[in-house]
Amino acid sequence: MFSVEVNHILKTYGKRAAVNDVSFNVNQGEIFGLIGPNGAGKTTTIRMMMDIIKPDSGDIKIMGEKLNDNSKNKIGYLPEERGLYKKMTVMDTIIYFASLKGIDAPLARQRGEELLKRADLLPHRNKRIEELSRGMSQIIQVIITVIHEPDLIILDEPFSGLDPVNTQLLKDLIRDLKKKGKTIIMSTHLMNDIEELCDRLLMINKGRAVLYGSLAEVKSNYRNNAVLVEAAGELGNIEGVTAQTPHNGAVELKLDAKTTPQMLLERLVKKGIVVNRFELSTPSLTEIFIKVVGDEHE
């Protein structure tokens, strides 16, 4: 069973389609990345998954069923637009939002204290939200998101506005949650976060899904039939290589359509070249992103 199944959802605002026929599945226990430029439709997609907005057509299943009161309690959601009741204290805030997820006060207090301690925020537990810094209150929001130990956690741009220390804290937390078997969906426009954390991804641009699959699959699909070679001495002219570009101390060799990397390796060996490193050149997600989005623009 998939943790999330999204089938052909469509949402239009006026004449503009914010999300246009998007489908994807999220496996249990994986970290799934939702990427795309600003305004691509990531937040709208997430809001439809949370039943905050209704899609014009298409359907969404969360843990095998339509979202209901019971399954809402099993989801933790960190919205992109973040905020809390300014006048409430940290602990009261945690307890109140936990209660809306069906957690009683003593348990919420206990878990809240543990999480605050982990984030070094325990001394602030009786302060009002308005007394905290922006980063601190964002961490409080993350705590609220996971306080009820949800099976599915949806994080919309979780790292925006966080300093490096808190970013690391949150990344560690996300990895921990994955270890505990939780499913995590995170949206971001920062490709590095995806490469670092995600198992699979969906790229949206202008409301349409443009890339979908595991990180490795996506990268291999965008492999440009090139090889990175680090060798002693000059390579010289090699049959089947159309271009040579230096790349971080190595050389990237572009191959023509008839040549496979295996054939190239044989030719290098025949030429008596000492090969220190030989690997398939895969573009970074950033390059793929720019390529895909660039293509769309044309």
Binding site: R47, M50, D51, I52, D69, K72, N73, I75, Y77, P79, E81, R82, G83, L84, Y85, K86, F97, L100, K101, Q141, I144
Partner: peptide, 12 residues
Amino acid sequence: NRVMEILLSSIS
């Protein structure tokens, strides 16, 4: 203060 979205993710 943008609490609305968290509320709506827990209740209808």
